[in-house]
Nucleic acid binder design. Structure first.
Lengths: 153, 153
DNA sequence: TATGAAAGAACGGCGAT
DNA sequence: ATCGCCGTTCTTTCATA
C-alpha cells in the first residue's frame, strides 16, 4: 500500500510523458516489462493514478489570449459558492476555478480568442451575476506549467 | 492543414481521456482504426497535440495543502522577470506560474504538505528574494479543473 | 482521404522462483 | 514481488479504391 522508490519513479515518468510505452517505462525503472505492467496497474487500481490527458496547442484552437479573473462574492454561503464554482467551470472558456482565502474569493483562468471575446466572457458570465460584487481582470503575458507533482514526506 | 469536425472530436476525446485506445477512438468518431490512426498521427506531426500527462492524486503524494501566491516585483525588467519565472517553476512545489497585468505581477500555484511547509516555501523562495516586494498568500479551499480547451472560431 | 488485410509489436494473464 | 513465457489484441503499414 505505501509507495516505494520505483512507484515514485513511474509516477514521475507518467506525469511528464504519458505516451511512454510499458516497455520503455520498464527499462527506465530497471524492471521487467511484466513487473512494470503490474505496478502501473496497481497504481491505477489504488487510485494513485487518476486519469491522463492530452495537451493541445491553444493557438491551433483559435485561442489568442488567456486571463485570470479575480472575483469577489457578496455572499459566502455554501450554496452560493458551490453553484458559482460549478457554473463557472461549465463555461467552455474556463480552464480552472479556485476558491481561495484572502482578498479575492475566486480566481478563474479563462481562454479567449481576443480582447473582445474576453470582454464578453467577463461581462456575460461574471460581472453580471448577482452574487459577484467585483471582477478584476488580468491578462496573462506568460504561463509556465509543471506537470509533475512533488512527492513530500 | 485546417482542422475539420472529426479532428476536433478526436482532440476533445484525447484531452479528456488519453487512455483511450485507437480502436475505441475510431469507433467514437465513426472511422476505421487505420484512418483514425493516421489522423491522430497527423495531429501529433502538425503540433496540434503537444504532449500527454498522467494525473495523480495529490493526497497520495503527501500533499495536504494548495495555495496561490500573489507576488509583486520591484523591477519589471525583462531579465529580472524571466529569471524569476524560470526559477519559480523549477521549485518542485510550484505547479504553475503566471506573469500577468494588473495589481499583482505574478501568480504562483504551490503545493505543500501543511501550513508549516507552505510557510517555509513562501519565506525561503519568494519573500526573501530581492526582486520581490510583496507576497500575498491565499489558501485554496477548492480547485476545479477542466482538461478540454474550447475551440473558438 | 478512407479502407481492409497482413505483419509486427505490445498487452495482459499465468505459473515458477 | 519479480520474471519469462505465450495467446490475444492492438498498432501500423501498404495496396487498393
Amino acid at each position: 500500500m505505501p509507495l516505494d522508490r520505483t512507484d515514485f519513479a513511474l509516477i514521475a515518468l507518467l506525469q511528464n510523458n504519458f505516451r511512454m510505452q510499458n516497455k520503455e517505462l520498464a527499462a527506465a525503472v530497471g524492471l521487467a516489462p511484466s513487473s512494470c505492467h503490474e505496478r502501473v496497474k496497481r497504481l491505477w487500481d489504488e487510485g494513485v493514478l487518476l486519469s491522463a490527458h492530452a495537451q493541445v496547442d491553444p493557438k491551433r484552437l483559435g485561442i489568442g489570449l488567456e486571463a485570470l479573473l479575480f472575483i469577489e462574492l457578496g455572499k459566502h454561503e455554501r450554496q452560493t459558492v458551490d453553484s458559482f464554482l460549478e457554473e463557472a467551470v461549465s463555461i467552455p472558456e474556463v480552464r480552472s476555478a479556485f476558491l481561495i482565502s484572502g482578498r479575492h474569493d475566486v480566481v478563474v483562468h479563462v481562454l479567449a480568442r481576443d480582447t473582445a471575446h474576453l470582454k464578453n466572457l467577463a461581462l456575460d458570465h461574471f460581472t453580471s451575476r448577482s452574487c459577484v460584487t467585483r471582477v478584476e481582470t488580468s491578462i496573462i503575458f506568460e504561463a509556465r506549467l509543471r506537470h509533475e507533482l512533488p512527492h513530500i514526506g
